[in-house]
């Protein structure tokens, strides 16, 4: 099942919409600095906040698509989530999983590769946005509420691995 994308531009507000959701172009500098900001405020829960903000803002995008296109199969939903990840410029993923666990492999990652371009390799995983996206994707696929899945990076492109590996576990 191929993801269908409908891009519209509102001539009054000059805003862009993809499948009815207001979207905006930004660059890896903005993403990298936002990610580092979360790390700088780690004592306040910055990385968690970034993950949850991602989960909560991506979920409506997926839910509305599945509702509009009447997609009910979890496998189809995961595959469409995978395609959405790429369509947003976040990288290329492979995904497998069930209602209780799963695994995502990122062959390419905007967050990691952007960080490496800007500052070079890092000594710990930084893809909080990717983890939040995957949490939203699994929760949407299996009709679960937010925070139903914990996502952790066991390998990371930013640390020099050839691919990032995200382990998904039911919370």
């Amino acid at each position: 099942m191929n993801l269908e994308l409908s891009h519209t531009f509102d001539e009054a507000s000059f805003r862009h919409f993809v499948n009815g959701h207001n979207v905006v172009l930004h660059c890896h500098h903005y993403m990298s600095l936002t990610t580092r900001l979360s790390e700088d405020f780690a004592d306040l829960g910055g990385p968690r906040v970034l993950r949850e903000a991602t989960e909560d803002s991506i979920r409506p995008v997926l839910d509305s698509y599945f509702a509009e296109h009447k997609v009910t199969s979890p496998a189809d939903r995961l595959d469409l989530g995978r395609q959405y990840f790429s369509a947003m410029g976040l990288g290329r993923m492979e995904v497998s999983g069930s209602a209780t666990e799963g695994q995502v492999t990122l062959r390419h990652s905007h967050v990691d590769e952007g960080w490496v371009q800007k500052w070079g390799a890092h000594d710990k995983p930084v893809n909080h946005v990717g983890c939040g996206f995957v949490a939203a994707m699994f929760a949407a696929a299996f009709d679960r509420p937010a925070r139903s899945f914990q996502v952790t990076e066991s390998a990371s492109i930013v640390m020099g691995a050839p691919a990032s590996v995200l382990a998904v576990r039911q919370a």
Binding site: V24, G89, H110
Partner: peptide
């Protein structure tokens, strides 16, 4: 590769709600 190289950067196209939620919650935890 699911990436958008252009203008000497890697571009992304995310919902505006993502950036707004991030900023709002970062301010809220401070």
């Amino acid at each position: 590769d699911g990436l958008m190289p252009g203008f000497n950067v890697l571009v992304n196209q995310l919902p505006t709600s993502f950036w707004n939620t991030v900023a709002e919650r970062f301010m809220a935890i401070a």
